[in-house]
Amino acid sequence: MQFGIFTVGDVTPDPTTGTTPTENERIRATVAIAKKAEEVGLDVFATGEHHNPPFVPSSPTTLLGYIAAQTERLILSTSTTLITTNDPVKIAEDFSVLQHLSGGRCDVMLGRGNTGPVYPWFGQDIRKAVPLTVEHYGLLRRLWREKVVDWSGQFRSPLQGFTLAPQPLDGVPPFVWHGSIRTPEIAELAAFHGDGFFANHIFWPASHTKRLVQLYRQRFEHYGHGSADQAIVGLGGQVFMRRNSQDAVDEFRPYFNKAPVYGYGPTLEEFTSQTPLTVGSPQQVIDKTLGFREYAGDYQRQLFLIDHAGLPLKTVLEQLDLLGEEVLPVLRREFRVGRPDHVPDAPTHQSLVAAAREQTP
């Protein structure tokens, strides 16, 4: 099982000091966080994609390529690549280049995006988000798998005799996760293609995540990719830790109360009781995370959000130390207990290349 972190890249004032990082400081802090993630033994670093303030990751593959040059083992991913408003040709090119630069240490998570104004900025209509997703992804798959592509569709100009350059590393495209917060059509799309499904999981109760994951697993089996428990599932989550749980609650409360995503709503206690957000001791994080398996089954990737809401870099790096030293070893051990042998690990470039060679006559 893979463990890692993801960032949304928000530039948010620290409510305890009133200090707001510059965009430059936030981008460089993100690089430092990724490097620290590798240092403490995590497997994955993922960045979101946003094109509006107060966010900075408008060019995820640029950021990930820079991080790739300064890491050796870390899998580099996105926590959203906007399949709706990006040109599939550019996505295919960018991630093929990232594959080559990172030695295959990358995959991609596709999402629709839920910021309405972004769609017209890129010439699209948010009311067409689902059909845009289906059409654009259909083209993206062909660009990564066919030497010459002739194509026509509804939402972009036709392609005639197009050849992707560079081709995917070793002839194998990056593994694709389809990320969703609430949309069953995305679970269906992931299942149809036998791709991974990532339930964002940080805003909703367990019952909601359970329904989406069960739908994906059932449809994965329906389409003949394997049994339902062999489907490739990832989950998000958010944690804030101190060795003393009350210290964690007291320190995190002002950040939670003014967080741009979920502040000014339910109390911290209400939110932690109803969603996967865990604020407390490392043991509390361990216990709650292990409980995800009760409704998601044996899954392949767990990503945590730890740098949101104006938390200073020093605090985030401390969180990573706790995650690597006290939480990660226990999660790795306990998630192996009772895991059936036929449940696959998360795909990597190496495993995908090996599978492709097995299928080659």
Rank of each mutant, 00 (worst) to 15 (best):
P166Q: 12
E185T: 14
G161K: 03
E185F: 12
L164A: 04
T183W: 08
A187T: 05
V172N: 13
L159R: 05
L169F: 12
T163M: 06
L164R: 06
P166S: 15
V176R: 02
V172Y: 03
P168V: 06
V176W: 00
R182T: 11
F162T: 03
P158G: 09
G179E: 07
A187D: 02
V176L: 08
A165T: 15
E188Y: 15
V176I: 15
L164Y: 00
E185R: 14
P184S: 06
L189P: 06
L164N: 07
T183E: 12
L159K: 06
F162M: 02
L159I: 06
D170T: 02
V176T: 13
E188A: 15
Q167C: 06
F162P: 02
I186F: 09
S180Y: 00
S180D: 10
G161H: 09
H178T: 09
G179F: 06
P173G: 08
L164W: 08
V172W: 04
G179T: 08
G171E: 14
I181T: 13
P184Y: 00
V172F: 03
R182A: 15
Q160C: 10
S180H: 05
A165I: 11
W177V: 08
H178A: 01
P184G: 11
P173R: 06
H178E: 04
E188K: 15
T183R: 10
E185V: 11
P168R: 04
I186R: 03
V172A: 06
P174R: 09
L169E: 04
I181P: 01
P158F: 02
P158N: 04
L159P: 00
S180C: 08
V172S: 09
P158S: 04
S157C: 03
S157I: 07
P174H: 09
H178W: 09
L164C: 07
W177Y: 14
L169V: 10
L169M: 13
V172L: 08
E188M: 13
R182D: 13
V176C: 09
F162Y: 15
I186L: 13
L189S: 01
W177L: 14
T163N: 11
Q167L: 10
W177R: 10
S180L: 11
Q167E: 15
P173W: 03
V172P: 07
T183S: 14
L169A: 10
E188D: 15
P173L: 05
L189A: 13
I181F: 10
F175V: 01
Q160V: 12
W177H: 13
Q160T: 12
Q160S: 14
H178R: 06
P173M: 01
V172E: 02
Q167M: 14
Q160L: 07
P158K: 01
G161Y: 03
P168K: 00
P168Q: 05
F175T: 02
Q160H: 12
P166H: 10
V172I: 12
F162R: 11
P166A: 13
P174M: 05
D170G: 00
P168C: 04
L189V: 08
L169T: 05
T163Y: 04
R182S: 14
T163V: 07
G179H: 06
R182I: 10
P166W: 14
R182W: 03
L164E: 07
H178K: 04
L159F: 04
A165W: 11
L169K: 03
L189H: 11
T183H: 11
D170H: 10
D170S: 07
P173K: 04
W177Q: 11
L159C: 00
G161T: 03
P173Q: 08
D170I: 07
G161M: 02
H178S: 04
P184K: 08
